[in-house]
Nucleic acid binder design. Structure first.
Lengths: 213, 213
DNA sequence: GGTAAAGTACGGCAGATGCCTTACAGAAAA
DNA sequence: TTTTCTGTAAGGCATCTGCCGTACTTTACC
């Protein structure tokens, strides 16, 4: 059984170029070709390919929107975005829309086939340039400006700060660490002094702000 | 000028395997080999390679920590993580640490060299399986799956919860809201009952977990 | 061998906190 | 109209907390 591929692209020359690349390999078969996003939705309703090679920029409905609608109706269809540009926001939107991969249009025929196969196997084929940008997205979107300040807390103090953040009282922390509650209090006194705070809530808020806990 | 590569890996067999793969190509040269993260830091201080192939799991200091320290001192050095596993959290931490790529250890020699070259060109070579996981990270990170639970807190109670989270005591909250500290205490009692907690720290931890504050 | 840091532990005290009860006014709902 | 909810306020009490001492042991570093 050949892999069923669909192509969505408005530029006739690029369609021809893609089709030529695909024809070099007999493990894939082109099911249909669409010239814009609206056409994609129409055709995919009748015939579901395994993979859609989707141009980002198309008239009527762009590739990102089309991807969203396709993945919404047929989550199993893999969508690989094709583009000449590597704009960060389009990459980001494509990923959110559910695209499985993202390739630049000048990939060699072998790469293209390889990407199609990887996508079917659950991988996410990406041109390295695109991959680099998606890593940037992760870095920027997640952990941003946490300013790690060293308050000079000892290991034991860190341990106790952890327990404080769980809402435990002196006695419970003492039981957990097999020490006297008096000792716990002394440690906490030292923590407060080092962090320059005066109660548990302030301590954990400051600790979280600086990523200590 | 050959590409200078360093290898960080604790398993002698895998070191040999990597070195053999690299020797098949004459555009790269192995500058040094380290057996753990601490050794990496020592050697990189004296000699800076273009690329480090870094094992995730190493004794003394793991690959993620080592990557963080290397990128901190020498941002231009590209780090490609090598691992047999594809654990999501390690991938995530590696990305945050500044890794440029992430490959599975069983990559073919050609792939390895290709990855090194792509990393130097600013790309982010990733095995498709890894790439798929990083896409998931982007998707999951952007729209937070915080489970909003309605605890039935009144407006006044919410207001007071906010103040609690700033580390204020009863008197300070009372002053801020122009009410008696006795009233504040009563509100807080009600908050505790609704949230089923028994102190300030537990209250704000639960509130933050559910995105109330 | 002295010093410093870290971890342990105790005592005291004033004030804060958690939890109980009662009470009343205004608003909203039944 | 009566009931319920919300917000306000107060008294009492056992416990917890924050802050001030002091003191011993171990480990690490000059």
């Amino acid at each position: 059984m050949k892999i069923q591929v669909a192509v969505a692209e408005d530029n006739p020359n690029l369609i021809r170029s893609v089709l030529e690349k695909l024809q070099l390999f007999d493990q894939v078969e082109v099911m249909w070709v669409a010239n814009n996003g609206v056409e994609v939705i129409q055709k995919v309703t009748n015939q579901q390919p395994d993979v859609i090679l989707m141009d980002i920029n198309m008239p009527e409905m762009n590739g990102v929107e089309a991807t969203r609608k396709v993945k919404d109706q047929f989550p199993n269809i893999k969508v690989i975005m094709l583009t000449v540009f590597d704009e960060t926001d389009k990459i980001f939107n494509s990923i959110l829309a559910g695209a499985s991969g993202y390739l630049l249009k000048d990939e060699k025929p072998g790469k293209l086939i390889q990407a199609i196969e990887e996508a079917i196997e659950g991988g996410a084929p990406m041109s390295p340039v695109i991959a680099a940008k998606s890593l940037q997205l992760i870095r920027s979107g997640k952990q941003e400006p946490i300013e790690s300040v060293d308050f000079g807390l000892t290991n034991r103090e860190m341990e106790i700060l952890e327990e404080i953040s769980k809402g435990k009282n002196y006695q419970q922390i003492a039981d957990k660490l097999f020490i006297s509650p008096k000792t716990v209090r002394k440690h906490i006194e030292n923590i407060y002094r080092k962090l320059q705070v005066h109660n548990k809530v302030e301590a954990i808020q400051l600790a979280m702000k600086h990523g200590i806990i």
